[in-house]
Amino acid sequence: MSDAPISTQRQLPRWFALIPVGALAVIIGFFAVGLTRDPHTLPTMMVDRPMPEFQLQQLTDDIPNLTSDQLRGHVTLVNVFGSWCVSCVAEHPMLMELSRQNLVTIHGVDWRDTPREGAAWLNRYGNPYASVGLDADSRLAIDLGVTGAPETFLVDKAGRVRYKQIGPITEEIWEETLAPLARSLEEEPQ
């Protein structure tokens, strides 16, 4: 046995034993909050930024191509869709209805599509868009921070993005969120 001094282990203060249970309480708290959040949806970086300049390919001869100028002067919706997108089919009747009642001008960005398939899709389900541009290689989509379709941007008169809707526009979302916001944007001076 060596003669080196041996420490007696300190009796740690009583509250030390409370650290683990306290830490657990905090962790469980965060987990509980975490459960109410969807890890898939990203916060929008685009809000209050001007729409980027873009050049899109014309989809078909009968529908005008979407250009940057069309987004100035009045409040518009820019809807990102694709013929491959299942939720877009679900959303489509709502867009048709908005366009039929002429509530707002909707422009379409046909994302990652081919002219043939995109046009066929619009033929089949109807065209609610004032103009449509084809974004085959995601240039505009990436510029807009799009992660999936459908996504819809509410653009004000000055051509700034004011709101982004991720996922299909439902009647509820239109009535409660988009329509009131669009109305107030209409009243803003340019």
Binding site: A4, P5, S7, Q9
Partner: peptide, 14 residues
């Protein structure tokens, strides 16, 4: 260090 801080005490069994 806090737990094992050497203190001048007698070695051996407590």
């Amino acid at each position: 260090f806090v737990y094992l801080r050497p203190r001048a005490q007698t070695p051996g069994l407590p």
